[in-house]
Design a protein around this nucleic acid. Structure first.
Lengths: 194, 194
DNA sequence: CGTCTATTTGAATGTACTCAAAAGCGGTGG
DNA sequence: CCACCGCTTTTGAGTACATTCAAATAGACG
């Protein structure tokens, strides 16, 4: 098998260059997993021990609050990284649940192996610095949209910006990402069409 | 002057250890600036060339949209880093304006010097990885709050979590951080008291 | 085919905004 | 030191946005 054909190494190559032995080494630390649709890889309240790279398929991370209200924090499709960052990096109880939206294959890297990797190949500090920097930029932009735009604008913006996600999810899940009820989103859509 | 007494080096020491020569080197790349209250260090539309560390005082980063609506993205008080991340890291036009809330002293590090620093002392990749990781975690938590909590809950949460910020800002600025009108926040406060 | 969940529709209620005006407060100049 | 100015905060009325609850319809899946 030619490792550099693996999607994850193309993903990493966007930011840093690895030599063969480093590729082999990272590969040895990761584990490829198949997930069935609706399979959970993390439950709210548990400590998240892994960071995941989505090879094929799609996942969703969401929170359920004390009133049972479900809020989607992020979706991850092929070529995206996903974890419950706060739980994973600080090794504390997760406020998120992560579930497969469809049959998927993912690569997982556990906390201890990541720490080892960062020490052995400091280039990965750079890789994750850029990864988190971009995640921060996206999240900050989402915050700006949340506090400055109407729900309709945010809806239009979401389906335009993430068509690859939209085709995998339900309208109810979009509502839970926008922070509105499914009933309201439904009504909003039908008004917009007219 | 004993550099390690500088707040910024205590800040950095939370995540990485530096030897004297490294401290000297970083210090040589940074510039200490005094700001008057209401002085701007970045205007929306311009490229942000610097990342700032707040030594004393406080700053605010905000966006003004096409309708003139002002939205506060972040506040930074003593011991915080602040920049228009998207603009700074991708060297593109900023969607944010950054202004001093009071007379302040800040340290600035410009884009080219940061790149040099990251190459010369790779430990800083680790430092900024952790810094951005924490920024991402905070921003993700803010998103969750925005989409799952009531305005009143978010208001109470904000004043409880950031008392050091609250004492420096106006109620109008809190409203622009929460994404509601000052009139509404005022009414909400008075209801809550009763 | 039957079951479960998602989506739609509608009525009633609550949340938040707009606009306008009054009151409060801080800073500045005379 | 006081008077004025500009901005913030408050208050209120009217309107728009969003939720809740309930019920009907539509789709997905075994």
């Amino acid at each position: 098998m030619i490792l550099t054909d693996q999607l994850i190494f193309k993903n990493i190559a966007k930011h840093i260059s690895l030599i063969d032995s480093e590729i082999q080494y990272l590969w040895s630390l990761m584990k490829k997993i198949s997930l069935d649709k609706k399979e959970y890889i993390l439950s709210q309240g548990k400590i998240c021990n892994k960071i995941y790279f989505v090879d094929q398929g799609s996942l969703r991370a969401y929170n359920v609050n004390e009133n049972g209200k479900e809020s989607t924090i992020m979706f991850a499709v092929s070529d995206w990284w996903i974890t419950a960052m706060d739980s994973f990096m600080n090794q504390k109880a997760s406020s998120l649940t992560i579930v497969a939206l469809e049959n998927s294959t993912i690569l997982e890297l556990d906390y201890d192996n990541l720490q080892t990797l960062l020490l052995k190949i400091p280039k990965f500090e750079r890789f994750f610095r850029i990864l988190f920097q971009n995640a921060y930029i996206r999240e900050q932009r989402r915050t700006l949209h949340n506090i400055s735009m109407s729900t309709e604008e945010r809806y239009v913006q979401f389906i335009k910006k993430y068509p690859a996600i939209v085709e995998k999810i339900t309208q109810k899940q979009i509502a839970s990402y926008l922070g509105v009820t499914p009933e309201f989103l439904s009504a909003l859509k039908n008004n917009a069409d007219s």
